[in-house]
């Protein structure tokens, strides 16, 4: 299955702006209501974008409800979920600790289903726990076409640094088996991740990572990224192609076009004209 060239992201909806706190507040105000999110999503769809790549933010659940309620309108529409929405858990871990966070976010699973000591259960069966966690995160997408399912970079890169590569293996096989979907990985460490995945027998993986002309958030440097993009076998999705706004769209996407292996570009924007402009550039150069 080939991915669309253009993937529409969700950062702008949730006040994620890597350069400016002020912009991020403006976005939080603008997208206060779910209707505002759906309006922009619909604009993207009208322009011809049919894949939405989004986190498992609580508010995405509302977007999913809307998509399910309007099957005609969203015929052919795909969502690529990215789990988990990290800040939800990161702030909770600071406040509640690791066990407290599990209790709060996996309700009705671990600690009630396995009343005889939820923690003991996790200890015996980490993979079973991971599967419950994935199922909890995936619940909001029920009935929606999700052909690729990603783990977010904070988790991918944590597992990568801890060298717990078997977790990738289990994730990979569970996503294929249970969701009949292609597993994807978001990372800020593309070369190291690809090497690790290859080392455990995962070949030609879908990897979404920062790829931009100025080497922003490309750990290890731009040269090794370019080498991997030219020589290695994997399915790259480029993210942060504008380097958080440091590059103009045309030069940014022209650069992406130098690497025929790149299958898709992930970007987010709030205005119809920006969405249109970026989409056209991607289709022109990719």
């Amino acid at each position: 299955m080939k991915m669309d060239k253009v993937l529409f992201g969700d950062n702008q909806f949730f006040a994620v702006n890597h350069l400016s706190d002020e912009k991020s507040r403006e976005q939080a105000i603008r997208f206060k209501d779910d209707a505002a999110i759906i309006r922009v999503l619909d604009q993207a769809r009208e322009i011809g974008i049919s894949t939405f790549m989004c986190t498992t933010h609580d508010r995405i659940a509302n977007v999913c409800d809307y998509v399910r309620a309007n099957p005609e309108k969203y015929r052919g529409f795909k969502i690529y979920p990215c789990m988990p929405y990290a800040h939800k858990y990161a702030n909770a871990v600071t406040d509640l600790g690791i066990i407290g966070t599990i209790k709060q976010y996996i309700p009705g699973n671990i600690f009630s289903t396995f009343t005889k000591g939820g923690v003991a259960f996790i200890r015996k069966d980490f993979i079973g726990f991971m599967e419950l966690f994935i199922d909890a995160e995936m619940k909001m997408f029920k009935g929606i076409n999700t052909p690729v399912i990603f783990i977010q970079n904070v988790l991918v890169d944590l597992i990568l640094g801890l060298k717990m590569f078997d977790v990738f293996k289990e994730y990979d096989s569970y996503i294929r088996k249970k969701y009949n979907a292609e597993p994807g990985y978001i990372t800020m460490n593309l070369p190291a991740l690809l090497d690790s995945l290859n080392s455990i027998g995962i070949e030609n993986p879908i990897i979404c990572s920062s790829i931009n002309k100025i080497g922003f958030r490309m750990s290890g440097g731009i040269n090794i990224y370019e080498k991997y993009l030219t020589e290695k076998t994997f399915r790259p999705i480029a993210l942060q192609v504008l380097a958080a706004g440091a590059l103009r769209p045309k030069e940014a996407i022209e650069y992406i076009g130098k690497f025929p292996k790149i299958e898709s570009v992930l970007f987010g924007a709030s205005s119809k004209s920006h969405i249109q402009e970026t989409k056209e550039l991607i289709e022109q150069y990719l």
């Binding site: 890597h18 350069l19 904070v154 890169d157 944590l158 640094g161 800020m188 460490n189 190291a192 100025i214 080497g215 922003f216 958030r217 750990s219 290890g220 440097g221 380097a243 958080a244 706004g245 440091a246």
Partner: peptide, 15 residues
């Protein structure tokens, strides 16, 4: 001025 001009290059990125 933005962090893109100042980011300290690293070999591994987490958070």
């Amino acid at each position: 001025k933005y962090i893109t001009d100042f980011a300290i290059p690293v070999n591994f990125y987490l958070r």
